Computed example of a mutant assay.
Amino acid sequence: MGLTSKEVLGLAVLAAVLLFVGTVWLWPRLARRGWRAVCGRVGLLLATQLAIFAAVGLAANQAFGFYASWSDLFGMEKDQGVVVDHAAGGPLRVADTRRVPGAGSGRPQVSGAIQEVGIVGRTTRIATPAYVYLPPEYFQPQYRTRRFPVAVVLTGYPGTASALVEKLRYPRTALELAREGRMEPMILVMLRPTVAPPRDTECVDVPGGPQTESFFARDLPDAVRAHYRVAREPRGWGIVGNSTGGYCALKIALHHPGVYAAGAGLSAYYKAPIDPTTGDLFHGDKERENRADLFWYLKHMPAADTSLLVSSSRTGESNYKDTLRFIDRVKATGLTRISSIILESGGHNFNTWRREIPGTLQWISERLTADR
């Protein structure tokens, strides 16, 4: 049974309940002196607490999508980072097609479709799974010649791509907004920035390691263009993310305005951290390290002709002051455009991002155009 399955969570909850009831029932028998009684009490308390901790941890993982599998949890996902072989069918291969959760009709012409795909970078040799949302119009005859705008959507770290579909509801939200006339039909390419698990590369081209920034700036757009009817020009491409994905989205939009016309960072930070999950990202390369600091980049590099959106909360988000400072720094460039979503309160969690996603999708739709 998988880490995120309801059966595993149900068993954990059941074990916690049974151990709690057993502790209450057996406590009088163990309330005597002697090493056996003491060991019995300690054992029951320890087992009950572990069961409760496991149940709470599994429930939190299902709610927030931290880990997708047991191997992901224990850091054993190491075979998917870099591949030598290129897929014979091209850089993007479709593994499965499914309906949009909560969209009603299963017909793609009515409710769109979600395709589970595998992407292989032709230059970086990075391989990663992703989900692609295709709007209903993609399947309708009157739109057969249209090349649709694209938003690349990134999770945080460690995150799972499926959380973008099931927890953050990007496809369902995009479908509803388009039906209401609040955004244009758009293709969403949803994946996590952790393309070399379990390492958190912070979308950096690591010297001698994964070339993550190049993958998102070059290989991913090329693979999507080769397989789908999507916009060819930068004016049809945007990138969105939350937390780590938000930092990546802002950085890639700033570094590569010739690829992405807009970038949105929800609850983003503005400088790549160095910690046990990232390892040494720069290997003494000060230029790379500076470029990964968005405040440094805005001050020292030429202004990028792109549009940015940032979000935070006055209460609940640790990035609030940095976000205000980032807005001021972008405004000072005179060329890069900046917008923001500032909530009165909201923590660093899915509920906060679900409140920001409709406005974010509407914002990015207004800045992208389809090839007609």
Results as ranks from 00 to 15, higher is better:
residue 94 V to A: 10
residue 94 V to R: 13
residue 5 S to N: 04
residue 256 H to S: 00
residue 189 V to Y: 09
residue 327 I to P: 02
residue 136 P to V: 08
residue 113 A to L: 01
residue 240 V to Y: 01
residue 238 G to K: 00
residue 285 D to R: 11
residue 28 P to W: 07
residue 367 R to W: 02
residue 228 Y to P: 08
residue 122 R to Q: 14
residue 199 R to V: 06
residue 91 P to V: 03
residue 76 M to C: 10
residue 294 L to N: 04
residue 348 H to N: 05
residue 234 P to M: 07
residue 213 E to H: 07
residue 20 F to M: 14
residue 59 A to I: 01
residue 277 T to N: 14
residue 10 G to N: 12
residue 341 I to E: 13
residue 208 G to K: 09
residue 94 V to M: 12
residue 225 R to N: 08
residue 194 T to I: 05
residue 190 M to W: 10
residue 174 A to K: 09
residue 156 G to H: 11
residue 341 I to A: 10
residue 285 D to F: 00
residue 102 G to D: 07
residue 203 C to M: 11
residue 313 S to R: 04
residue 275 D to A: 12
residue 21 V to F: 14
residue 347 G to W: 08
residue 118 G to S: 12
residue 31 A to I: 05
residue 187 I to W: 00
residue 165 V to Y: 01
residue 236 G to Y: 09
residue 141 P to A: 06
residue 327 I to R: 08
residue 272 A to P: 01
residue 354 R to V: 09
residue 340 S to G: 01
residue 268 A to Y: 11
residue 78 K to L: 04
residue 21 V to A: 15
residue 62 Q to F: 09
residue 85 D to G: 09
residue 330 V to H: 00
residue 57 G to L: 12
residue 37 A to C: 15
residue 26 L to W: 13
residue 341 I to F: 11
residue 276 P to Q: 05
residue 324 L to Y: 06
residue 288 R to E: 10
residue 273 P to M: 08
residue 341 I to Y: 11
residue 203 C to S: 13
residue 43 G to M: 00
residue 21 V to P: 04
residue 226 A to V: 03
residue 15 A to E: 06
residue 235 R to C: 03
residue 302 P to L: 04
residue 260 Y to I: 02
residue 311 S to M: 03
residue 34 G to H: 05
residue 315 T to C: 07
residue 35 W to G: 09
residue 279 G to W: 12
residue 335 L to Q: 14
residue 195 V to I: 15
residue 89 G to V: 11
residue 98 R to L: 08
residue 21 V to C: 08
residue 220 L to A: 09
residue 271 K to W: 03
residue 250 L to W: 05
residue 295 F to Q: 05
residue 221 P to D: 10
residue 250 L to Q: 01
residue 163 A to V: 05
residue 345 S to D: 11
residue 96 D to V: 10
residue 264 A to M: 01
residue 302 P to G: 02
residue 114 I to T: 10
residue 369 T to N: 02
residue 25 W to L: 14
residue 342 I to F: 00
residue 222 D to T: 11
residue 70 W to Q: 02
residue 280 D to Y: 11
residue 371 D to I: 00
residue 354 R to P: 06
residue 141 P to D: 09
residue 230 V to S: 02
